[in-house]
């Protein structure tokens, strides 16, 4: 049994300490993802906190057939959407360039961070699918589960996302990747 499974088992038995240790494994990754979906750093932190609380509260419903991170991301995506309200604005519409939390957290580099382009060019769900695939290295099935979408939707939209980014970037050669 891996350490993660042991922590999950202990947390399921009611140990908050075990869940805190488990949360430490994921909180930076979740926060990085949430910064791409929230209007401010404070919102991203609030959603992270809500996500971890909800995960601990409803841990009994976690199905061990799926990766724990998939389940956490699913909760995080829902919580971020709830914070944005029922109007379902696209993430790009929420931002004010000066206070953009993602911009604030980007390391200085010679080229523009591709995720900034992705956020401008792709819709929310496709952006999330791309993030889970390339930043989190999730499988198509895990992404489908996290986004509550079909595997076909995920495959098609990953391909579309790639094509959109590739066509936008002159320095990245056309190259395809097989999914599934």
């Amino acid at each position: 049994m891996t350490d993660e499974l042991k922590l999950i088992a202990a947390a399921k038995a009611g140990s908050a300490e075990a869940f805190c240790d488990l949360a430490r494994l994921y909180r930076e990754r979740l926060l990085r993802f949430l910064l791409t979906r929230c209007a401010s750093y404070a919102d991203a932190e609030d959603v992270l906190q809500d996500t971890l609380i909800a995960a601990f509260r409803y841990l009994h419903s976690y199905d061990a057939r799926w990766r724990f991170s998939t389940w956490l991301y699913r909760i995080a995506i829902r919580n971020a959407a709830k914070l944005r309200g029922p109007d379902l604005l696209e993430v790009g519409e929420l931002r004010d360039e000066e206070n953009d939390p993602l911009l604030q957290c980007m390391a200085d580099s010679e080229s523009k961070n591709l995720w900034l382009n992705a956020r401008q060019l792709l819709n929310d769900d496709v952006f999330a699918a791309m993030w889970l695939r390339y930043a989190e290295d999730m499988s198509v099935n895990d992404i489908s589960k996290a986004l509550d979408r079909s595997a076909s939707w995920t495959k098609v939209n990953l391909m579309r996302g790639r094509r959109t980014l590739e066509s936008n970037l002159s320095d990245v050669p056309e190259q395809s990747e097989a999914y599934g």
Partner: peptide, 23 residues
């Protein structure tokens, strides 16, 4: 890993976040 995937991965890693002590 193709070039786009590699760059997306690197750029994601270039987003520096840290959970503050307060959080």
């Amino acid at each position: 890993m193709d070039k786009l995937a590699k760059r997306l991965r690197e750029d994601a890693a270039n987003i520096n976040v840290s959970v503050s002590d307060e959080l």
